[in-house]
């Protein structure tokens, strides 16, 4: 699904990603963990096409197609979705209208007709139920005055509506209490299929109890320094990152 080779990226001439290699197959969930400032969020932004970051080297392929030169909206049309760590507030535009717009813009780009209203409504109801979102919430202005938990739930609701091929969850667990975490994780799990892939970026192991990864990668100083299965996350939780730093040094 996602193929990243020797990816380098910088912001304002400062190198942040220094050669990332990562392959995520269809149906897989990968987690990226790492200390603050290791480049986790940068990786998410670069995949989604944030123009603040410059990809200086390497390959970025989605289903074998080079997406590195595409605009963020074009990447979205190809099936990339980023759940933001800090979703932006858009007063005056309701959650429903925003989601409708996003879906129809994507359909338009794919040469499809707009989604019929009845189908849209049915889908909204279905996905809102999945994330335990009530109707009032849907008519509120996007993210305006939302609590941290509501913002994250709304991100996953958008993901559910857009049905991306690759979903990147950037620190989706931050600011969530345990109930909200369970709802969000449950939502993500229900959306998993053989035709999509999920990249979970997180600081803590806690989310990975609910969204169980096939692989865990440790990012440090712009490089993946260690990969393993879900047990690696547990070990990191227990021991922190220092032991990996030592390993990297001796290597």
């Amino acid at each position: 699904m996602l193929q990243i080779e020797n990816l380098h990226a910088s912001v304002e001439d400062k190198d942040i990603l220094k050669g990332i290699d990562l392959q995520i197959g269809a149906g897989e969930v990968h987690a990226i963990m790492g200390p603050n400032g290791s480049g986790k969020s940068t990786l998410a932004s670069v995949i989604a096409g944030n123009e603040d970051y410059e990809m200086t080297e390497g390959n970025l392929l989605l289903e074998g197609e080079d997406i590195s030169e595409l605009d963020p909206e074009e990447r979205a049309h190809h099936g990339v979705f980023l759940s933001f760590q800090y979703p932006v507030e858009i007063p005056g535009v309701s959650v429903t209208n925003f989601v409708k717009t996003a879906i129809n813009e994507t359909r338009k780009a794919q040469g499809m007709e707009e989604m019929p209203a009845a189908e849209m409504l049915k889908k909204i109801r279905e996905k809102a139920a999945l994330l335990e979102i009530d109707r009032k919430f849907l008519s509120r202005s996007l993210n305006e005055g939302f609590s941290g938990g509501e913002k994250k739930r709304n991100e996953i609701f958008q993901m559910a509506m857009l049905e991306p091929k690759l979903a990147i969850l950037d620190e989706t667990d931050s600011g969530l209490d345990i109930d909200a975490l369970r709802i969000v994780a449950n939502g993500v799990n229900k959306l998993r299929s053989e035709n999509n892939a999920v990249l979970v970026i997180t600081h803590y192991q806690r989310l990975l109890d609910y969204i169980v990864p096939d692989k865990v990668h440790v990012l440090m100083d712009g490089k993946i320094v260690k990969s393993g299965d879900k047990d690696l996350a547990l070990k990191l939780e227990e021991k922190g990152y220092d032991w990996i730093k030592e390993e990297v040094k001796t290597a």
Partner: peptide, 17 residues
Amino acid sequence: DEDALFYLRSRGIGKKE
């Protein structure tokens, strides 16, 4: 706001819109 612009574009909404 550039961040807000990126947020909208990442949802498939074109730059102009």
